[in-house]
Write a protein that binds this DNA or RNA. Sequence first.
RNA 1: GCGGAAUUGGUGAAGUGGUUAACACGCUAGAUUGUGGCUCUAGUAUGCAUGGGUUCGAUUCCCAUAUUUCGCCCCA
Length: 421
Amino acid sequence: MIQKPKGTQDIYGKKAKTIKYLEKLIESVAEKYNFSYSRTPVFERSEVFHRGVGDTTDIVTKETYDFIDRGNRQMTLRPEGTAALVRCFLENKLYSENINKFWYFEPMFRYERPQSGRFREHYQFGFEVFGSNDPMLDAEIISIPVTIYKLLGLKGIKVNVNTLGDAESRKNYRIALINYFKPYINDLCDDCKQRLEKNPLRILDCKVDCEKEIMKNIPKMSDYLNDESKVFFESVKKYLDAYEINYEVKDTLVRGLDYYTHTVFEVEADIKGFGAQNVLCGGGRYNSLIKTLDGPDTPALGFGMGVERLMNALEAEEIVVGDKKTLDCFIITISDNEKTYAAKLLYDLRINGFSVDADYLSKNLKGQFKEADKYNSKFIIILGEEEVKTGMLTVKDMILKEENKIYKEEIIDFLDMNVGD
RNA sequence: GCGGAAUUGGUGAAGUGGUUAACACGCUAGAUUGUGGCUCUAGUAUGCAUGGGUUCGAUUCCCAUAUUUCGCCCCA
């Protein structure tokens, strides 16, 4: 038996229905926020992510699906949505417009060891805004996942926010961190020893070293923010209050992708018994990314949310979404003699907008009734010798449990009147 | 990349080094030859992830591989 590749999933049945429902919900939220739908290729030239996400990040150093195509080009399966969308933004010169608001819902690929809430292929949706430095948008971006959780009735969530400041603040803080940790380099874990030169900010959210004595007096980002960055973050917080968002400022929150500046945020699942992978959503402002990828200096921000983790959270809170499967009508035939008549009827009803099905397994009457039940059919049409001959159909209302005789010519009007929403 | 635990019909699962692999759901047929949902009866794994090995004999013990799951790291 051939098994699926590690960390991938077959999506069908209940799971498929939930994903479809979520996608529609997200689309409707996107419309309300005036974001437009976008799609980019599943694979890109590797440098999109290597330069975009950052060469020192774990995502790029050990988690990308890289391959060389037949034309000897180095390609990478998309590990996250932002860098790819920035490439699209630049290539199509969308910066000629004032502002661009995009959303996406696509599979992402990371070569990792799977566990609860983590896959090698998973779905992620995200919202990105290019072209504005207004702190009101930072709050708006954070409000989108919060709105989605609210619409779904998901309560166990926690919003953490921080600022990394602008390039100058970040540079000063970086120097301060290196100076602080250098004397203690032997006390740090092996990963952090590497991080010290390449990306010292990442030491802050290291889970190995976080309990150590040296972590207690580390310089604070807030002391290295220049006035402009401070004012910006204060505005963001003011707007967050206006959006009535409950958040916590967490000054060790730095995020694992290199492109962030100013505002960064995460939404955690705060549900008892939830797995170790509890970050449902993460994002922030990335004002320097577009320039890094050879574009004009354009401010931007956004977030991404893991669909499987969102579904885990819904399940943990026993929230069921999506409608029950129903059928307007099921056609039962007494014998094979009525099958051509049934075929015509199926075609007629379907083309007139009804959801209709019939038996294709030559089941007996009882079996056909059971099947109609399984699909929650509102009506059943029973076709026998008599009905075919006279054109007088036997129609059973499964909700009122009553049977009617309807002329074939009137069946569409009849169903129209009785199959409401 | 590192560590732990798993893998038995369509599904949830019990079980054992030795003739017929429990139970439940589902499915099929019948009781009920044009009316389902309830009930009753019968049927439903020549096989226990795959490939090796140990053994007179392996689904059971050992090894490898694949997948799942729970952590670490990291992230959505």
